[in-house]
């Protein structure tokens, strides 16, 4: 099965990102294909490398980045949602005249079209959020 995943909530405040991670991990273990994970609304906050959770807690961003490195996962942050919430890669930094970027390893910023495309191309698009 070819899955696509939509994550609509940020880390820690809400369990959606954790559950999405567990789902993607389990799907990959079972031999399924996950063609894209798209982060929207506050979900884009999963993609900042500046988070530093307590050491005895799970590191949600790092967990996604590690999974992406291991499985060549496509982790996409919605550009419009990122602009509102201050998630910035090098291109966005230059375009918006900012003095830093904060995108985490393994994530990329792109448009909402990537979500629609995932809906078209995947067998199932699974949403995590309220």
């Amino acid at each position: 099965m070819k899955f696509a995943v939509l994550v609509n909530e940020g880390p820690y405040q809400h369990q959606a990102s954790d559950t999405a991670y567990q789902f993607v991990h389990a799907a990959l273990q079972a031999g399924h294909d996950v063609m894209r994970v798209f982060f929207y609304h506050d979900g884009v906050n999963n993609g900042t490398r500046l988070t530093s959770p307590p050491q005895d807690d799970r590191h949600i961003q790092k967990r996604w980045s590690d999974l992406a490195a291991e499985h060549k996962l496509d982790l996409v942050l919605c550009v419009a949602a990122c602009q509102r919430r201050g998630i910035v890669d090098e291109d966005e930094m230059k375009r918006n005249g900012k003095d830093a970027d904060n995108i985490a390893e393994g994530f990329r910023i792109s448009g909402l079209g990537q979500l629609i495309e995932a809906g078209i191309e995947a067998d199932r698009l699974i949403t995590f959020g309220d």
Binding site: G111, G113, E117
Partner: peptide, 10 residues
């Protein structure tokens, strides 16, 4: 944007 050019046909 590239997605405006989507021509998958599905």
């Amino acid at each position: 944007m590239e997605e405006d050019e989507y021509a998958g046909g599905v």
